[in-house]
Amino acid sequence: MRKLAIGRFIFPLYALLALVFLLIPIVYTFVFSFNQARRRNTIWNGFTLDHWANVCSRQDLCDALGTSLTISFISTLIATILGTALAIALVRYRFRARSAVSLSLFLPMATPEIVMGAGLASLFFSLGIERGMFTVILAHVMFCLSFVVTTVKARVQMLDPTLEEAASDLYATPTQVFWKVTFPLLVPGIMAAALLSFALSFDDFIITYFNAGNVTTFPLFIYVAAKGGLPPEANVIASSVFILAILIVVATQVYGNLKKKRLALAK
């Protein structure tokens, strides 16, 4: 009985502590986005909505954000298209370099980022490619690709090949089969891969740092700014990103539950 009583209090308390521990930095960031900051945004001076209303009062910050969004968008687009094609090819076709490709896709996930970042930088240097937006996108596509392929591949493997056969039996050409059956069925996997890829690219610091040249992405800006004191506008952006991410997660959950309920009701 005693054991049981301890269990009943200890475990919820433990969970609560863990949650608090995880949430403190986020809550701190969020709260201080409303601070009437002086030179440094570390001491609470009173509530204001100014930073939320004029995020771009710090032009350099908003430029960095724009650069990051552009890079993430382009890298995600390229990585998703290439990765999806690769995933389908790896599952469906037997070709000579198949296992070599499979293995090399794992490498970016397994290699420490610092090694990859430095390696890429020296590669670009010896090839004489000037570092900048282009090299950053190239690097991001490279590591995002692995995650896209892994995510989409799982989806392709789950796909029932008789569905595609049924479509071709119903007069669809191979191209039509792909766009009317294969692709729509892969969309959830592709979307998940794109989101993951965007998040990874947007968030990346180490690899970007080595290959950015004089391009400043949002994480690079924060890194530099943090030395001299982070402007509260940075807290605003960080909080927004966090809220957006939470909203996406909640929305998918709610949508999934609704769909389940509808299915159950219709049965």
């Binding site: 008789t162 056969e165 479509a167 071709s168 007069y171 669809a172 050409t173």
Partner: peptide, 19 residues
């Protein structure tokens, strides 16, 4: 090719398009 043949199949596993 299958799509060129004047044949239709009722598959053992139904193979209905879930989407």
């Amino acid at each position: 090719k299958p799509h060129e043949r004047p044949v239709n199949t009722v598959f053992q596993s139904y193979a209905l398009f879930p989407h």
